[in-house]
Amino acid sequence: MPVNPVAENVLGTIGLIIWTVQIIPQIYKSWAERSTEGLSPWLVLLWGISEGMLGAYTVLRSINVPLILQPHLFGALALVSWGQCQYYGGQRSAWRASLMALGAMLLIGGAEAGIVFAVRPAYNAGSAAGERGVQFLGLFSSVLFVLGLLPQYVEVWRRREVVGISILFMTCDMLGGMFSDLSLVFKSEFDVIAGMSYTLVIVCPTIFTSPAVLR
C-alpha cells in the first residue's frame, strides 16, 4: 500500500470522531435508566487505564495527531462511565463519584506524562531499552483492554444476555478500531503493536453484538 499522509490522517480522523462519541450512548443509557446494572465497572476502569498507556505509546511513537488524541478522549469518557458505575451501582453520592472519576483521570494522566518524560530521552537516543519501554506500553495497553473485557464476559455469561451495555457503543467501538487500523496502513511503516491494539478492539467486543446474546 503506497504511503499517503492525507489518507492516513483522514482515516485517523474518522476513527477519532467515532471513538470520541462512541461511549456517549453508553453514558446516556446509564443516565436515562438511572442504572449501570449489567455494566462491569472493571470494564470501563481498565479501559480508562489502558487508554492512558496507549496514549503514552502514541505520543512517544508520534503516530499521527488523530491517533494521539483518540486514546486520551476515549479514556476520559470511559472514566466518566466508571464514575456513573460508582454513583448508580456503588450507591455513592454524586460528589464522591465525580471526585473519584476526576481523581482517576488526574492519576492516569499524571502517570502517562511521567512515563513519557522518563522514556522519551532513551527512546529518542535509539537505545534498546527505550525501544523496549515503548513496546511494553503498547503491549500492556492491549493486555489491560482484554482484561477489562473478562469481567464483562462473565456478566454476560451469567445472565445469558447483554444487559446494561449500549450495542451502539460497542458497534462504534469496533468501527473506530477499523478506521484506525486503516489509517496505519497508509503510513510509511505499519505500526504492528498499535495495529494489534486496534484489531483487538474490533474482534473482542463482537460477543456483545452477537445475535446469540441479543435476546
Rank of each mutant, 00 (worst) to 15 (best):
V134N: 12
E51D: 03
V156I: 13
A129G: 00
V203Q: 08
Q86P: 07
L39Y: 04
M105F: 13
S81R: 02
E33Q: 12
G126D: 08
F179G: 06
E37Y: 07
N4E: 10
C172T: 09
A7E: 09
R34N: 11
A7M: 12
Q26E: 06
A78G: 05
G109L: 06
M178Y: 11
W31Q: 14
L139E: 03
N124F: 09
S62L: 12
V80Q: 08
L11W: 07
N9M: 09
V134Y: 15
K29S: 11
A101I: 15
Q26R: 07
R61P: 05
G109I: 02
G126Q: 13
A97H: 05
I23R: 00
S188K: 15
M53P: 00
G55H: 04
A212L: 15
Y123K: 08
M196V: 01
V185D: 13
E189L: 03
A97L: 05
L43P: 03
A97F: 01
S35I: 05
W82V: 00
F117I: 14
I207V: 15
T58L: 04
I115W: 10
G126H: 11
L43G: 02
Q22D: 03
M196C: 00
D181F: 14
P205N: 08
L45P: 03
L144C: 05
G48D: 01
M196Y: 00
T206I: 14
M196P: 02
I165A: 10
S30M: 05
L73K: 02
N9I: 13
G52S: 07
V59K: 09
S141Y: 01
N124R: 10
H72Q: 01
Q86G: 06
W95V: 12
W47E: 02
V116D: 14
V21P: 01
G110P: 13
S210M: 14
E131N: 13
F74N: 02
L39M: 15
Y87H: 07
S35C: 04
V154R: 11
G55D: 01
V10N: 14
R158V: 13
S197K: 03
E33N: 15
Y28T: 13
Q84F: 08
R96E: 15
T209D: 13
L73C: 02
F117C: 09
P5G: 11
V143P: 06
G110C: 08
V185E: 09
